[in-house]
Design a protein around this nucleic acid. Structure first.
Length: 473
RNA sequence: GCCAAGAUGGCGGAGCGGCUACGCAAUCGCCUGCAGAGCGAUACCAUUCCGGUUCGAAUCCGGAUCUUGGCUCCA
């Protein structure tokens, strides 16, 4: 039974999709104006984990993730870069997808762009005006918060008691209420000059940020969807506003379960440019490898802050390597296992289904990947232990299939065992084996060095040498 | 001002009602021609503080202290 923590109720709830067996998920995607950092990817990975878990549990899942390719920052920075908005955002959209691949994040069903859905936004704005929930002022359209009594139900913010910060929209536009937010913004002369504008009943405009998600989510799934994900920082105002727009227009519940990912911090502090502690994904992947980064994210529950540091990353890497090593050893043993018909180890075989139950229960408990990893580690321990004791093919196969099942759900070790060993290395290994047979240790050791220089390591085993690519660093 | 989260061994860091993981560092053993790599094991053996609930709490509740975060663009 899957339980998911819902930000709307602040409780773990038994998950039940609107449509039996099918789950609709909308995820807030990137604003493509610079290299996404590892914190962004932590949230994207959380969504990936949710998708994979749901699929593992037998649901058909449809994920839609938006790409914000028009907003203040994209407009500002494309101008600074001296290129068109589209060229600029295309570049960072490509980077975003590269990052997904680095982390082995599965592609969503669709990635709608804000710029491709402006018609829908104008339509939604029109509808909200009709309902008295929005108004036009100086060519911009604003949402009227006072018309939506549920405003604040997601963030639970008590608007009477909080500071209205000095910066509460010191927009040059006048609004009825300082918290009213823009649905459509009147184009500036500069935007018009650059062709970044759309015709609307209220003149030339460009879309606001909040309205795009309402439109793209409802275009994809209709008025009500099962799950909406995003970072905790989006709870207010972004998601609060999405609810106001969507439910204001349709009168139906917009999202059943809101799932928010906690932030990644760096050595106890928030990532910020001023502290110089913002890490982009390629930087970190370069250092530790994509799978280690994925593992690192999985090792902390998504609702807890992840405190990134060198020590933490090293730790994750070690833990990851142990798990991977066990898989390598298993695959090697399987390759070399004979067909002897010994009965195999019943104790090992019997422990497997129980482990799978624990593994599934961990993920069913609000996508608890750290707990699932603990179970995975136990499987790896059992596997290693068995390799010391016996090499029965049937047992190995069984253990291997569980290992693969776990790793697939977690999105790990996708390419393990599939790397091709270069011919040159294979030849050197053969030469070394010949030398070893002749007890020519000098030659053998020299060859091992040579192989190492090529980036491959050898493990001498009873069955023969196991060659694999050395981990970088 | 208002709100929230967190405090775990030598270190990193999971667990979130009953053995405490796991990794690093240390020690021993296995494997090996040896080394690396790999595997097993040992030891140390911690849960910020004060109360409460419970047969039993790191885990639930209250309070204190400290730390961080949000209330404004933000994953």
């Amino acid at each position: 039974m899957l339980q998911v923590y819902n930000t709307l109720t602040r409780e773990k709830e038994i998950f039940k999709p609107v449509k039996e067996g099918e789950v609709s998920i909308y995820a807030c995607g990137p604003t493509v104006y610079n290299m996404p950092h590892i914190g962004n990817y932590r949230t994207f990975l959380m969504t990936d984990n949710i998708v994979r878990t749901l699929e593992y549990l037998g649901y058909r899942v449809k994920l839609v993730m938006n790409i914000t390719d028009i907003d203040d920052k994209t407009i500002r920075d494309s101008k600074a870069a001296g290129i068109s908005l589209k060229d600029f955002t295309d570049k960072y959209t490509a980077e975003f997808f590269k990052g997904l691949d680095m982390l082995n994040i599965k592609r969503a069903f669709a990635y709608p762009r804000a710029t491709e859905n402006v018609d829908g936004m104008i339509e939604l704005a029109r509808k909200l005006i009709e309902k008295g929930l929005a108004y036009e002022k100086d060519g911009s359209v604003y949402y009227r918060i006072s018309g939506f009594p549920d405003y604040g139900k997601l963030s639970k913010i008590d608007f009477d008691n909080i500071m209205i910060g000095a910066s509460v929209d010191v927009d040059e536009y006048d609004k009825d209420n300082p918290r009213d937010f823009a649905l459509l913004k009147a184009s500036t002369p500069e935007e018009i000059e650059r062709g970044i504008c759309y015709e609307s009943p209220w003149g030339k405009i460009r879309p606001g940020w909040h309205i795009e998600c309402s439109v793209m989510a409802m275009n994809s799934f209709g008025p009500t969807l099962d799950i909406h994900t995003g970072g905790v920082d989006l709870i207010f105002p972004h998601h609060e506003n999405e609810i106001a727009q969507s439910e204001g227009a349709t009168g139906k519940p917009f999202v059943c379960t809101w799932v928010h990912g906690e932030h990644l911090i760096v050595e106890g502090a928030k990532m910020s440019k001023s502290l110089g502690n913002v890490f982009t994904l390629p930087e970190v992947v370069e250092k530790y490898g994509g799978e280690v980064v994925r593992f690192m994210f999985l090792s902390v529950h998504y609702r807890k802050k992840l405190d990134y540091s060198g020590a933490f990353a090293e730790n994750a890497k070690n833990n990851y390597m142990r798990l991977k090593e066990a898989l390598d050893n298993l695959e090697f043993a399987l390759k070399n296992a004979g067909d002897e018909s010994s009965p195999g180890d019943l104790e090992t075989l019997e422990s497997l289904p129980e482990l799978e139950t624990q593994f599934r229960q961990a993920l069913e408990d609000d996508f608890n990947t750290p707990k699932a990893l603990t179970v995975f580690r136990e499987l790896s321990r059992i596997s290693n232990l068995y390799l010391e004791a016996g090499k029965n093919r049937e047992v190995l196969k069984k253990v291997y299939s569980f290992y693969r099942q776990f790793s697939d759900v977690l999105g790990l070790f996708t390419n393990a065992g599939k790397e091709e060993i270069p011919e040159e290395v294979v030849r050197l290994v053969e030469e070394r084996e010949a030398a070893r047979k002749n007890k020519d240790w000098e030659t053998s050791d020299a060859l091992r060095e040579k192989i190492k220089a090529l980036g491959y390591v050898i493990q001498d085993k009873k069955e023969g040498p196991n060659v694999k690519k050395a981990e970088e660093s």
